[in-house]
């Protein structure tokens, strides 16, 4: 174990802590904040099951985005779907072959979809970035951080693709490093420049997740315009602070 490996071990634990604590705190905040009025964007489902379906179409298919802008939808959906595939492919670093779900992770489909999906991810991200530069309306609403976020993720995807196609790294040693983190018995990290870049960028992404617009991922589930049942006449809906007004007079 050299100093470099130790510092990555330390940074990973710190980033993980920030990510988990930060996102959990946000989720608790969203869940605790009352929604005092019924404000689903109508037509809205009139049952809970309907709401689950509506939410599923939003999260899986980006239904509203599909209605509003085909280009953003294509680029955005490609990027997110590829992100999911990449995530699945990375599970093989975390699980061991004696694990029950191993065949689900370590098979031809998951490994190849994740590998080639990286191109789709880069393509989608490039499209989103191009829109930010080229469409005057999107340029107007973009801050430097919006560009950097895309560049950061492109950096992650780019360095990852580089490793899977061109500059292969010692994934056996990498896996030992990851398992070491999980079992609190730190192991050495392969000292490969591309890998270190890849991991550093991932660390940055983890840290900024709870303090940036990446909160859209938990946020979408709490959006009252999408997750409320349209039944205000049938069921009285009232927030605790609003009920207090009633006892006041």
């Amino acid at each position: 174990m050299n100093a470099l490996s130790w510092s990555y071990v330390f940074m990973f634990y710190l980033a993980m802590l920030i990510l988990v604590v930060g996102v959990t705190r946000k989720i608790i905040q969203y869940a605790r904040t009352p929604a005092p009025l019924k404000i689903p964007t109508t037509p809205a489902p009139v049952t809970k099951a309907g709401v689950v379906w509506r939410m599923a179409t939003e999260v899986v298919l980006f239904n509203s985005l599909f209605k509003s802008n085909r280009w953003i939808w294509i680029f955005g959906w490609m990027f997110h779907f590829a992100l999911l595939l990449a995530f699945l492919r990375h599970l093989r670093y975390v699980f061991t072959p004696d694990c029950l779900i191993w065949p689900l992770i370590n098979n031809w489909l998951v490994l190849n979809a994740g590998k080639y999906g990286a191109y789709a991810m880069l393509f989608g991200l490039a499209g989103l970035l191009a829109r930010r530069f080229l469409v005057d309306r999107v340029r107007y609403i973009s801050s430097p951080s919006d560009y950097l976020m895309l560049i950061l993720i492109m950096g992650i995807a780019g360095s990852g693709t580089w490793m899977s196609f061109i500059n292969h790294v010692d994934i056996i040693q990498l896996k030992e490093f990851v398992l070491g983190l999980l079992t609190f018995s730190p192991q050495a990290l392969p000292t490969d420049g591309v890998l270190l870049t890849h991991l550093t960028l991932v660390l940055i992404l983890m840290v900024i997740f709870p303090i940036s617009k990446l909160l859209h991922a938990p946020g979408v589930f709490f959006s009252p315009t999408r997750n409320q049942v349209d039944n205000p006449r049938e069921q009285r809906h009232i927030a605790p602070w609003a009920r207090e007004l009633e006892t006041g007079n």
């Binding site: 904040t33 929604a35 404000i39 999107v138 609403i141 617009k213 009252p224």
Partner: peptide, 22 residues
């Protein structure tokens, strides 16, 4: 933002995708 979940979630969640701009 402590009284309205809509406000808290909406202030955090916008990704500046631009879909609403037109």
């Amino acid at each position: 933002k402590g009284k309205y979940r809509s406000l808290q979630v909406f202030l955090d969640s916008c990704v500046k995708c631009g879909a609403c701009t037109d």
